[in-house]
Amino acid sequence: MGDEPVLECRGLRKVFGENTAVDGVGFSIAAGETYGLLGPNGAGKTTTISMVAGILERDAGDVLVEGRVHSPRDGRGKSAIGYIPQELAIYPDLSATENLRFFARLYGLSRARARARTAEVLEVIGLADRAKEPVKQYSGGMKRRLNIGIGLLHEPRLLILDEPTVGVDPQSRNAILESVARLAAEGAAVLYTTHYMEEAERLCDRVGIIDEGRLRAEGTRRELVGLVGENDRVLLTAEGDLAAAAEAAGKLPAVRQAGHGEGRVDLLVESAREVLPAVLDTVTRAGAAVRAVEVREPNLEAVFLHLTGKALRD
């Protein structure tokens, strides 16, 4: 991950009539970093990235791409951005090759370079063998892959994905998430909006929680969870003297709470990953045979609930 931010947003604001869609949003993304904007529908995610992508004029604030102020009329800034909209944005009567080549040329690639990149991207998105068919004959997943592929053509330093997995089957969703992770690993800065907590947790190095146009908090997953102050929960499926096992585990310094039920020891700990070896050793010594271990860390859903008083899918 590089130190210099590829994208820096400061005090972004957008008002539609009486409705303030985005109010003072600011964040930055370094090269190789994936930044997630997590919020429910209508939180201001799409408006924010539309301003970043130069699609929407902002009422206030700054967007800097690679240190340069970026505006909707800034061709150079736009060349650095790969924008992948939420809805499919492809020409159904054209083939994948024609779609890709058109957008490659529109982003300033020479004819030869456009041809070469089209071939490369077709391989990456797995459509090389059906590249000549009209897109309208593709399955939904194939269209999604093409939709993403178009954003990759000009090898952007900043990739913006607006909820790319909405309405996508689990297999395609997994492929999309893997593609995004690979792009970030190759050095692209990624801005990813989602209202799926699982995606944000899996994909993003840092997450900004946005609601009603305001950025409520941002940080790594652990930093955000730390804001809530919740502990990890460790569930041990076990046999033997479970009462003794729970009592022994409860005496460990990192264990905040210990209990037991039918075939189960239930512990509340500060950091499950650190304390788990000691817990397992203690309960085994106390006479319990552990069959399975389940760790439940506090998630972003809980953070969102804590910060906004409502669930992500509200």
């Binding site: 699609i55 909707p72 800034g77 951005i81 909209p85 809805e87 944005a89």
Partner: peptide, 14 residues
């Protein structure tokens, strides 16, 4: 069809 967003996001004058 959504393609207008892509055209507007491209480095070309509107």
């Amino acid at each position: 069809d959504g393609t207008l967003a892509r055209l507007v996001a491209a480095p070309i004058p509107r």
